[in-house]
Design a protein around this nucleic acid. Structure first.
Lengths: 240, 240
DNA sequence: ACCTGAACACCGTTCAAGT
DNA sequence: ACCTGAACACCGTTCAAGT
């Protein structure tokens, strides 16, 4: 919400200004931010130019093409992720840094999808990964273990992430033309049971669903605890 | 590569045929499959119609719009994921099912991104999740623990998944206009060290990089072991 | 009644024409 | 030399006109 609709500012349209406006526009456009599957996205070169009170072509003075614009937006967002305090032990330092990344990516909900759509990592992403790796290494983990651990932190184990749940809470699932109305409890009894259990102990969560922050920390700590144990046992990939 | 360019087949264009051709086209179009950020994607309504030897509008007889087409494609792909053998213990049954999901999504590399772009889960996705949940529940895990465990399996802990690494192997990272040439080892020393360690013990991997299958199983087992331990200890979310 | 070509409102990007 | 409007090759989708 920084400089939302300041259409005709007098400033001479630097690359900085273009990127900052692009991030603001993507934040404002509720959707996926940059050509996700939905057409009602709202983010485009032409739209961005309009927001800046400028002819579309003018953007190409500061950015080679849309790909480079997206790279710049990613770098700007990922650059917001904080570095860990130097004093802490590796476990809480990693924890702190990953939670910082989470909160930044929650503020720019288009960002995770755009990052994954890039053909290669941008400098800020490399710096972030380098920083997390450094925290593990400084904590005494071997390069070998650190390597596998980084993959573990970056894996989508189910094959995709579970944001569908959150979306599914508001939007009912589409029904196949043959199938009848959704009676979810009947079709997916196990899933319904879980959903009910989640809604039951929803004291902590303000909204209807479950406490996403708790779920995230649960997963993170599960992995960090496992990593700590492997580290103490002197795990090596030779033991595979 | 099923019915790649059979342009003018005589069959009368059922919904089945449209979806099957759509999946084949997305598989063939190397990119992200459905309007990822790159414009060189190759997948579009018009392109699909052309592949079927049909005017674009004809598709709308069998599919309401592109969103519904994508939902159908997701359902078709996710439907390929195998169910676990009923005899096994919960740990290896989950392992088997998740590895099956991984191999299916590797065959249709556009699918994970498209699934995450949907506004809500499709029936096949719900069935898959229901099945995994059922495996945990049949293994004796509480609904409470199962719920959190499902979130853990669906989390992107780093904030995004690490496919950037794989892409980065082929494509060099973009350089900011101010910065000089990439000397990666100097800019990101920790990352370079890890990459070197990965390349060093690359006996098992056929290509240059690291064994992605091993990395995946490492992460999966790390989580499954942690889950098993929590289960044996009778973990409850009340203990948070 | 059915099908479809032209059309609409977009998109990223190019390029020649205007100053 | 610089800037930009028109244009190009797309896109998803609508709709009226043709059979």
């Amino acid at each position: 919400m920084a400089e939302e609709r300041g259409s005709a500012d007098r400033a001479p349209l630097s690359r900085e200004r273009v990127l900052r406006a692009a991030v603001a526009l993507a934040d404002a456009s509720g959707g996926s931010g940059a050509s996700g599957a939905s057409g009602a996205d709202g983010f485009s070169m032409r739209r961005l130019a309009q927001e800046l009170g400028v002819v579309p072509m003018a953007l190409y003075k500061h950015v080679a093409n849309k790909e480079e614009l997206l790279d710049g937006m990613v770098d700007m967002v990922v650059g917001e992720i904080g570095r860990p305090a130097p004093g802490a032990d590796w476990k809480s330092a990693v924890r702190q840094q990953i939670l910082s990344a989470r909160s930044v990516l929650l503020q720019h909900r288009w960002a995770a999808r755009v990052i994954e759509s890039r053909t290669g990592p941008t400098p800020a992403v490399l710096a972030y990964l380098d920083s997390v790796i450094g925290t593990f290494r400084d904590g005494g983990l071997s390069a070998d273990l650190t390597h596998h651990v980084m993959h573990a932190l970056g894996s989508r184990l189910l094959g995709f992430s579970q944001e569908l749940f959150d979306a599914g809470r508001s939007t009912p699932p589409p029904s196949t033309p043959g199938g009848s109305a959704p009676d979810l409890a009947g079709a997916y009894p196990r899933l319904a049971e879980i959903a009910a259990a989640a809604a039951h102990d929803a004291d902590s969560a303000v909204g209807g669903g479950c406490d996403d922050r708790f779920e995230f920390e649960f997963a993170l700590d599960l992995l960090l605890d496992g990593i700590e144990r492997l580290h103490h046992r002197g795990w090596t990939s030779a033991s595979r």
